[in-house]
Write a protein that binds this DNA or RNA. Structure first.
Lengths: 341, 341
DNA sequence: CTGAAAGCGCTAACAG
DNA sequence: CTGTTAGCGCTTTCAG
């Protein structure tokens, strides 16, 4: 109400109400037993002055902040956007707030972000891991803060994680292409060193092998990471032009799928007659773009729900050991017009 | 290194090095003048034990957290995603971290989020405002924390903001449709009470008037807020079916534009021959979907850059009064095939 | 050049 | 039922 330049504290309220800070603290937190009269008086003064407890002080004193940190690769983007909603909802039900930070796939940023959130700022973490962050993540775990990894994991560390079954979902997608008669299947992926991408490409390779097609490394194109959109599209066009006999192409990320679509578009290739395509990770563009782009649809709801449930259960029970919980959830292949049957 | 279950503190380091906490604090923060010998010893022990200052304690003591809070309507989504990147970059250059929270266009969530960040958790805010949050935002300003609003503003409050020029960008888009010969132009908007939407619809109304078309409230359709995607699409289809003479339709948000596109799609209407369309806020779908969807492209980079610069300059100088800084940045109309010339 | 000590705002024994 | 007090980890003034 009054524009007090400085925040009012528990001590001020005690003074204003002729009580002690304990009394005020108790009524604020609903602890102890305070006479209704005093309780009312304190509450009155508190709300009238817009009292809000200082989170820093509470945090410092109690060691808990009631907030969960969500560290993602990139803020924005359909995958994390969808996850965010369900994580927020569940967290709120349990009395936790959620704050987000993004690493932009950069190790140093990741380290900075973790440093920023660490040390009592958050009670627990949900993190998209990346190589180079192993020690930082281990540290927070060792300091007693629970961590659940999503979208990826550290093969050598015992940290709970939940993600899509990358290997099998790609394996199945490629197998399905082969079954439909495609013989020359290209694979476009970012040149990024992430386990999940590793497993996807292995799924591709194994499916090609299992389908009796000849393996050909020239059919695998790694788009340089960090290239801007124009360059990436240009490089994909280039790749496609150099490999005219390619009948179908698989894009290993959402992002690349969109750019690939644009590349195909610019080359005036018809989908699926000139070239068929499948993308990992569905989005609105793939759904609407005629004739519809076949995509591996991640079980975002399940991943998010499992991750937050896991974290919350650990938060509720210090003793719970979740380090062995490792979930790989199957994905659906949403078949659309971009691949013929 | 060692998996100490508890974090090491400045006091522990003092003990380990036979110095005092002052000395340790000084070397950690590069203050005072400490002999190189001791400095080295302290630094050694600190890094060996993975010492990290407790942000809560620092925050409590100093009153600054070096963190900026970004409160957006929804995490995920192209508009905020793009802004996030530039805000992060600029903030980092200035030594600030960024954390995000989303309100999901819900007043109570907004209040909770502000409460969560308030009280020293962040040093400054960039906020997407919404009705009902006036007092909360005023409070943080009164408590001395700078706030910059983006994407919207409070007409009655003196709080700096930067956003697209909603009125003129819609006015111009509609005018351009009229110039192209469209006579019956519908307007689809969320049934949400936000200034920015208010101004957009006024832009539409004024353009219709200025263009000499007859105003017809039946051409304005408000999609109930909170309806899920299927229902929203169904309602748009319904609206379109009931208004067969509509020649062009303007969607006032990105989100509605995508759904509108899908509705038009499902009705098997040809774009632009059966119906022309324009959407506020560009996205990848509009860019790629044949024949390309004309869109009002928000100057995201400029908005984000201006907002963060404003906030940082205020953060650097307490005395700076930014309350009068109100920026409305013009938007480009990206004309594509969905509207004929 | 280094240490003792106060205090940021809050919680929670412990006393009365 | 309410008040006194210690202390969370840190910064910083003031003494030495």
């Amino acid at each position: 109400m009054a524009d007090n330049k400085k925040k009012i504290s528990i001590k001020d309220i005690a003074k204003l109400t002729n009580t002690s800070i304990t009394t005020v603290s108790f009524v604020i937190n609903g602890k102890g037993r305070i006479s209704n009269e005093i309780k009312k008086k304190v509450l009155d003064v508190a709300t009238k002055n817009g009292y809000e407890p200082n989170r820093m002080a509470v945090g410092l004193r109690t060691g808990v902040s009631k907030v969960i940190g969500l560290i993602v690769e990139t803020i924005g983007g359909p995958f994390f956007g969808a996850m965010a909603k369900v994580i927020e909802e569940e967290a709120e039900k349990a009395g936790y707030g959620v704050i987000y930070c993004s690493t932009n796939n950069n190790v140093q940023t990741g380290k900075n972000v973790i440093k920023m959130l660490s040390n009592q700022l958050v009670d627990g973490y949900i993190v998209t891991p990346m190589k180079g962050l192993e020690s930082d993540i281990e540290n927070i775990v060792n300091n007693g803060k629970p961590v659940v990894l999503i979208d990826g994991y550290f093969p050598d560390l015992n940290i709970p994680h939940v993600l899509v079954d990358n290997y099998n979902s790609v394996f199945n997608a490629i197998k399905s292409l082969i079954t439909s008669g495609y013989k020359s299947i290209a694979y476009v992926t970012p040149d990024l060193d992430l386990v999940q991408l590793e497993e996807r490409i292995t799924g591709y390779r194994d499916a090609v092998k299992a389908g009796g097609l000849k393996e050909d490394n020239k059919l695998i194109f790694k788009v340089p990471f960090g290239s801007d959109k124009e360059n990436a599209i240009a490089s994909i066009k280039d790749f496609l032009k150099k490999n005219k006999k390619v009948e179908a192409v698989f894009f290993s990320t959402n992002y690349l799928g969109s750019m690939g679509l644009q590349a195909i578009n610019e080359l005036k290739l018809g989908i699926p007659d000139d070239i068929a395509m499948v993308s990992f990770d569905d989005n609105e563009l793939f759904e609407l773009y005629p004739p519809g782009i076949t995509a591996v649809k991640q079980p975002t709801y399940q991943i998010a729900k499992s991750a937050i449930d896991l974290l919350l259960s650990r938060l509720h029970d210090d003793k719970l050991d979740i380090s062995e919980i490792k979930m790989q959830i199957p994905a659906d292949l949403v078949v659309r017009g971009s691949t013929k049957n």
